[in-house]
Design a protein around this nucleic acid. Structure first.
Length: 214
DNA sequence: TCACTGATCGTCT
DNA sequence: GACGATCAGTGAG
């Protein structure tokens, strides 16, 4: 057994400001790529019967209008209709027979685009996340889009929720300043693979993917 | 630690 | 009928 530095029991939540300020829609950039950058460092608030879970977004991907890799590319369907609504709404889809992925709709109403929330740093409500993701290390609770949705209990039931309004799932302003944002290729695609539309906080251990993805 | 693979089912062609 | 904005498990080094 190699004794690497033990995963510190230190919790970032001990020094958090207690005030969460909901983001207003007017604050969200209309442009999808700008929104993807804007959301790095922002806060996800998930209110559940057993309590509140709070996480800090550390990794996103932009899916633009006229982007062959985007779900909206072939037009509006029953599944992706949220992407064509006003920005700041939750688009949640089911993938690979096992997982859900959480997106924030972008652009003006009528334009299909969104930002995939790929990873976040758990701040509060870790107990519930551990229950929903048994066996996972704390570092991996929200590390990857499928894991994030699972740990925060986000499913198709949350599709269409207004993230700028009071409710069970919403977005709040950053609780802490963010480090430099790194840009890279998006992960897991077969189309438009070379576009640099993935964004993550440099050095953050909660970011998903291989370290040299880029 | 890295690379590879199978699981699994809703959605769209 | 094919495929997918993934992940956990496995095996090799």
């Amino acid at each position: 057994m190699i004794s690497r530095a033990a995963p510190g029991p230190k919790s970032p939540s001990t020094s958090l400001p207690s005030r969460l300020r909901r983001l207003r829609r007017a604050e969200l950039p209309i442009d999808t790529e700008a929104l993807a950058r804007f959301l790095i460092g922002a806060t996800i608030v998930r209110d559940l019967p057993e309590g509140r879970a709070v996480a800090r977004i550390v990794e996103t991907e932009a899916y633009l209008p006229m982007d062959a890799a985007a779900h909206s590319f072939r037009g509006k369907t029953a599944r992706n209709r949220t992407l064509f609504g006003r920005r700041g709404h939750a688009y949640v889809y089911y993938i690979y027979g096992n997982y859900y992925c959480f997106n924030v709709s972008a652009e003006a109403a009528g334009v299909g685009a969104g930002v995939l929330i790929r990873a976040a740093e758990p701040l509060r409500g870790l107990e519930g996340m551990r229950v929903r993701r048994p066996g996972a290390r704390d570092r991996d609770l929200l590390r990857g889009p499928g894991r994030l949705a699972s740990a925060l209990a986000i499913t198709r039931a949350e599709d269409g929720l207004d993230l700028c309004a009071a409710g069970p799932l919403w977005l709040a302003a950053p609780l802490a300043p963010r480090a430099e944002i790194v840009t890279s290729r998006r992960i897991g695609l077969t189309k438009e693979v070379d576009r640099l539309l993935r964004f993550y906080e440099r050095g953050n251990p909660h970011v998903s993917g291989a370290k040299n993805a880029g």
